[in-house]
Write a protein that binds this DNA or RNA. Structure first.
Ligand code: FES
Ligand code: FES
Lengths: 146, 146
DNA sequence: TACTTATCCTATCTGCTTAGTAGGAATTGT
DNA sequence: ACAATTCCTACTAAGCAGATAGGATAAGTA
């Protein structure tokens, strides 16, 4: 599993849209500023997220993006898999491995299967409602630094 | 985390040497045949494993390789980290990430930290004595196929 | 000493992926 | 008409994965 910049931008995008859920549309420009991403690169990420059914858009003068589903219905795992591909740590488990001739004989296979489950156990159990709550509770926190 | 062919060859190398532990030296040629790796590529892997203190070698006519430690004292995690680098799923946690300006504010950070721990929980708890036992028990199994 | 069989060392290469850039077409409100 | 926006396609620079190539060095043996 590798989370690329693209994946990171996608997650931050969904989170930003989740924070604006049921309020206003978010433009690529504003998003790019807030999540600190190159706008032209972000455009491509947004295009993919739309194809993936995560977000919806409105074109034209007062256009922008919004979530296609409730934040609670989108998990980190879903987004990462869609943008960065399978979470399996080795090509073998994705069925693209020449060396895995006899699946039943390789004693490492179970290790990678367990690893995959362990990763899934984390990222498939965090949704964007959880994250929105976390952001909001962070904002309420008092500031102790001077 | 990504396990490359190099990492896979390294693991299979250690396992093969573990199976020959305290018996005979293993040559690159024999190893390459058994684990199905290009010999010249495997040479480089062996060189790295030696530098990493996993294996020892003897040069010359009757040379070859052997484990530098007991199989039980080598874990899958150790080998993978040495050959394929840090297991963290995102550059951010490796300290090579421009976008992680305020570490305390990014709500995704905990997700990646938890993911790292989950992976570690698997690969750092499998050693090569476990794997040797598994190979041997597999060999003892009756064959049900015709 | 010559020969063989090994490890050891360094350079090079090809294809793929990542992260980004570039330029403009299409859409919509004012 | 104009401005602001999404949408679409192509291109590029850098790095990495997975080798390949060619030999130098070491050690046992006839
Ligand atoms: S080669 Fe496929 S699991 Fe090991
Ligand atoms: S940007 Fe560093 S953890 Fe999110």
């Amino acid at each position: 599993m590798k989370v690329t910049y693209k994946g990171d931008y996608a997650l931050k995008t969904i989170l930003d849209l989740a924070l604006h859920y049921d309020k206003e549309l978010v433009t690529t420009h504003d998003l790019a500023v807030r999540i600190d991403a190159p706008i032209k690169f972000l455009e491509q990420v947004l295009s993919e997220l739309k194809k993936g059914g995560f977000i919806e858009s409105r074109r034209g003068n007062v256009g922008g993006y919004m979530l296609a589903r409730k934040p609670a219905k989108i998990t980190v795992g879903e987004v990462i898999r869609f943008i960065d591909g399978p979470i399996e740590p080795i090509a073998c488990l994705k069925g693209e491995y020449a060396n895995c001739s006899d699946i039943n004989k390789c004693v490492f296979r179970k290790v990678w299967e367990d690893t995959t489950k362990a990763i899934s156990g984390v990222i498939d159990n965090v949704n964007f409602d959880d994250l929105v709550s976390k952001v909001k509770s962070q904002q309420e926190e008092p500031i102790y630094s001077i």
